[in-house]
Design a protein around this nucleic acid. Sequence first.
DNA 1: TATGGTTGTCTATATCAATAGACATTTTGA
DNA 2: TCAAAATGTCTATTGATATAGACAACCATA
Lengths: 245, 245
Amino acid sequence: MAGLKQVQRQTGVALWRQIADRIREAISSGAYDETGMVPPETVLALQFGVNRHTVRSALAALAQEGIVRAVQGRGTLIERKERLNFPITRRTRFTAGIGDQAREMRGLLLDEAKEEASAEIARWLGLKPGEQVIRLETLRQADKRPVSRATSWFPAERFAGIGEAYRTGESITKAFAELGLPDYVRATTEVTAAHASAADMADLELTPGAILLIAKAMNTDLEGVPVQYSISRFAADRVQFTIEN
Amino acid sequence: MAGLKQVQRQTGVALWRQIADRIREAISSGAYDETGMVPPETVLALQFGVNRHTVRSALAALAQEGIVRAVQGRGTLIERKERLNFPITRRTRFTAGIGDQAREMRGLLLDEAKEEASAEIARWLGLKPGEQVIRLETLRQADKRPVSRATSWFPAERFAGIGEAYRTGESITKAFAELGLPDYVRATTEVTAAHASAADMADLELTPGAILLIAKAMNTDLEGVPVQYSISRFAADRVQFTIEN
DNA sequence: TATGGTTGTCTATATCAATAGACATTTTGA
DNA sequence: TCAAAATGTCTATTGATATAGACAACCATA
């Protein structure tokens, strides 16, 4: 399991942050499932080869994130530890994909705009650059916990009113259905990773240094005509993607 | 493009490192392709709202990575900027997948061991826990630049000698072929992201704070019998995954 | 060849990060 | 009820980080 060995000194990233990352990882890998607690501060300090105060800074950061809760005299309890699985297939849908892994799924519309397609968007949607597209900024939550922040583009002519449909249905699938598109398929998905920007940190309730999994996806209708291009930014410590071939 | 606006103060990560990350991203997004140079230090300092010395620390780190090169009197030149695309399909192969994006592809065998399958490995390979498996530690390079570090497990009985076959062939596909398995398919792939460990930083020539894309993959033969389970760790700034459905 | 724009170097100061040690406070269980 | 084990708080010191200003060195070009 997570070999909690010595940390090596790295410039530019505070030791307590590196240690916080290591402990967070150990927690989510289930290393402390037996006790439901993090080892005592003195033990962690010894394992990582740092001062106890440094470990305390790390644990304070994790407490701030809501991952652990310290109780004087008892120890430091682990609060949460789930990682949602997100299957990527031809029938990928965010809400259904998460399925029974969470009780309540919501999609919130943060912003809507009609704009001219950039060269890249036009290419993905099979339009000419400058044609009208609707851009939706959405935030997706699983049990009130933010999971991803997405920017989606739709051909404006075909999907007029999709913003309102999304706002009421709280999912792309329902919005498409309301606009007369009962079914669609995932054509391509590109996955990369990056550090979270300040804006994404705020929306996804992340802390500095957090990682994003970025999925650029294109959906088509059953005839293969592009209906949506989206760039979704997932909190990397809350999800994993599964590709079944 | 990459809106190089003010950085917001984040505890635990040095400002110069955050700025280095932002500039690296801007470079790889092609923001400075016209000039082939990063803007002057004074301009960057103004854009980010920090002191010029802080920008200099960031640029020094990027120079250390080989991404930029400062020339006194002229400016700071951009050295490299490629991101390899790695398609994930039923026929995913590392070497062929990279294909024409690099001239020379190599797979180096770092370590080989015969061991008992853990519960997880056994599950993936369809074995009983404790059955013998062969574990290979490999490093994959594109044009001498390390791209990924992988740990792979194979059923020991069926693939005895795969270590030697990999060492000479420098690819899994060739090693399989040599052992009488001319073809195989990718069954499942799970993608996550995490910070690089010290060991991976060394092997992949990464700098502190670097991100990994982690792909856990299972390959089967044409009858659907598992032949390989692997955990590959990619330098996130050097690759992207593409899933075509 | 002179000038403006650029990177390189130096000094100084304030704040943050990390270590070190001591002791208080709380919980659990013998 | 006491002792052990755990987290909480305080003081002090050192080195890394960030800002500020000034000037040197170098390059391109008008």
